[in-house]
Design a protein around this nucleic acid. Structure first.
Lengths: 171, 171
DNA sequence: AGATAATTTATTGCCTACGATTTGATTGTG
DNA sequence: CACAATCAAATCGTAGGCAATAAATTATCT
C-alpha cells in the first residue's frame, strides 16, 4: 500500500457536506437525501456492531431479539413473538427451530389450543441472560452518544415507525 | 367478530407509556429500550410502506437503491455500488443479474480494467426514473411528518451510523 | 348435531444478506 | 521477464425476511 491515500474515500459518507446547498440538497431522489436509506444503512451498521458480541453468545441478531422477549417473559407463542417483532411465522419458525437445535429453547404445542406453539427457554437459554447483560452498554459506548441522546433518537424513530404503520393500516 | 375487542392489542406499540417510570424504563435489556430494535423495526415499516409503490415499478427495495445510484450517475462498477450501499458482491451480483434479466441494466467488463464490471442503465432503466420521481413524496406523506423534521431525523440517524462505522474501523 | 364459512396458524418458495473461498486480472518487485 | 501480492467478481453455504399457500380450529347457519 504505497499511495492509497488520496485515491477514493473507502466509504462515501453521505453527509450533506460539500455542494453548499446547491440543487443537490433539494433533490428528493438523491440517495443521500432519503430517510429510508438512512434507516437502511444505520440498521446495517448496527447489526455489524452487534455481530462480534453476538458471536460470543452463539446467536444471530434476530435470534437475540427473540431471546430478549423470552427473558422478559417466558413461554410465549410464535404468534405473540411475531407481533412484538413484526415478523410472521414464516420467518420465526425456522429461526426458532435453530434456537431449539442449539438447546436454547423448546417448542411445544399449547394443550389448550393445539394451533399454537409455545416457546420456552431451556436452562441454557436462561443462563445466556447473564452473558448478554453487558451488550447494550457496549453498543452505546461504540456509538459515542450519551444514553439520553440515544433515548431521544430512539423515541423519534419509534414515532416514525408508528406513524408509518398506522398509515399502512388505513390503506 | 363478536367480542374481539378487549382481547389483546393487535400490535404492541413499544411506546414508553405505562409503568410510570418504574424499573422497566431503566432496564437496558428490555426490547423496547433498545435503539437497535427501533432502527430494525422502523426499517421494516419503511420497507413495507415502499413495497406497494415499488411493485408498480416492478423492483424490490434494494434494487431500487441501486437504481437511485445509477440515476444519479450511470456506469458505476459493482465495487462502487457496494461501497455506497455497504453490500458486497455476494449480494449485488445476483441482484444485478435480476435487474439485467428485467432489461433495466446491462453488465459489462470495464475494458480499461477487466477485473471490474460496469453497470449501465438501459433505455427502460432510464425511463423508470420518471415513474419513481413521486415516491419520496408519497412516503413523506405517509409518515405524517414535515420534510424538515424528516431531514433532521435523517441527519441524526446518519450521524449515528457514521459513529458506529468509525468505531468498528478502529477495532 | 352436522355442514359450511371465516379466521388463524404454520409451512413452502423466492429474494436479500453475509462470510469464506475461488478465479482471473493487475500491479509491484527482484 | 518472472514471481508474488493485491484486487474485483463470482460462487457456495447459511440465515433472515416476506408473499402465497395449505392445514387446522372456531363460529355460524340450517
Amino acid at each position: 500500500m504505497t499511495e492509497s491515500r488520496v485515491t477514493e474515500p473507502r466509504h462515501p459518507e453521505n453527509t450533506l457536506a460539500g455542494t453548499g446547498a446547491t440543487e443537490a440538497g433539494d433533490n428528493p431522489l438523491l440517495l443521500a437525501n432519503q430517510i429510508c436509506f438512512a434507516l437502511y444503512s444505520a440498521t446495517h451498521a448496527m447489526t455489524k456492531a452487534y455481530r462480534p458480541l453476538l458471536d460470543d453468545l452463539g446467536v444471530t441478531y434476530p435470534q437475540y431479539l427473540v431471546l430478549l422477549l423470552l427473558w422478559e417473559r417466558d413461554g410465549r407463542s410464535v404468534k405473540e413473538l411475531g407481533e412484538h417483532l413484526s415478523l410472521d411465522s414464516g420467518t420465526l419458525t425456522p429461526l426458532l427451530k435453530r434456537l431449539e437445535g442449539q438447546g436454547l429453547v423448546s417448542r411445544s404445542r399449547d394443550r389448550a389450543d393445539e394451533r399454537s406453539v409455545l416457546i420456552h427457554l431451556t436452562v441454557q437459554g436462561k443462563a445466556l441472560h447473564d452473558k448478554a447483560e453487558c451488550l447494550p452498554a457496549r453498543i452505546t459506548e461504540a456509538s459515542g452518544c450519551s444514553t439520553a441522546d440515544l433515548a431521544g433518537l430512539r423515541d423519534q424513530i419509534l414515532r416514525l415507525r408508528n406513524d408509518l404503520t398506522a398509515a399502512l393500516r388505513k390503506t
